[in-house]
Amino acid sequence: MNFIIAVFTQTFRNLFQTWSAQLLTLITITLSVLIFAFFYLIYTNVQHAGQQLDDDLRLVIYLDEEPAEEMQEEYRKKIVKFDKVERIEFVSSKEAYGRFAAQLEEDRDVLEDMPRDFLPPSIEVYPVRSLDTLTKIKRFSDYLVSLPGVLKVQYGREWVERFYTFVKLLRIIVFLSGSLLILTTTFMVANTIRLTLLSRKDELELLRLVGASTHYIRLPFFLEGALQGFIGSAAGMAALFLLFNWIKLRFAVSSIFQLFEFTFFPFPVVIAIIVISSLLCAGGSFSSTRKFLQL
């Protein structure tokens, strides 16, 4: 018990004495957590967004002739062979005509002179709505075109491709900012601790001479690192939460927000980010004290 009190006293004394260096480290940690969590938040939301894309994620396969019953079964098999899909719908020329007419509403009389089967029959494929599918959709389309009797395959190509590059970019950014987070937290903390160690060289020397235990010397630095990580990451997450709500309010009416439902991290993810940052910082300080004190 006395040991714990002694260690905490020591820790807070250190923090108090070197607060300017501590503050700098804290700000760095907060910023890197904020940057990482920001991109990670976008990434997770975009990933969910895939599920809300619905019809935009439909591939339409135009056929040169109406497929017979067994032919439909054949197509179904071949499509499923490539990837799991949510649903496959066959649209005959007549049904296509009907839909078109319905879309035209008042102006449907322009179709009057056209034959009922002037639109080609088609197969509508609804892939499983996930980000994974999105990244594969081009290959899927290429595969479908190669099937016999297929005239052409249509999907929201431009949109999908743009979305795909965006997601790819996001993935890189998340990866980079994650690495940045790891580097800054461990490095900055290790460095601050090293500076503290240097500035307190005499004191540490004296502590050893009067018989301080290894834990008594080292634990305060460990706690200091963990505390920096905890406070820094908690502040970063709080800042992100505020930013998130502000953006949500500000752009509530804009179209992107109509399209996706933006949500903040679930609570366990927030906790996980804070815990991981704390551990990283504690680890940084631990390694730095080991090197310096040669314990």
């Binding site: 006395n2 006293t9 005499d202 502590l207 001479l209 009067v210 301080a212 008594y216």
Partner: peptide, 24 residues
């Protein structure tokens, strides 16, 4: 002497007892 110049007299003396986890 090996005193810690920035610390107070009391803190300097306390160091020797703190390492034995003596109550404050």
């Amino acid at each position: 002497f090996k005193l810690l110049p920035d610390k107070t007299v009391a803190q300097n003396i306390a160091v020797a007892m703190e390492v034995s986890y003596t109550r404050s």
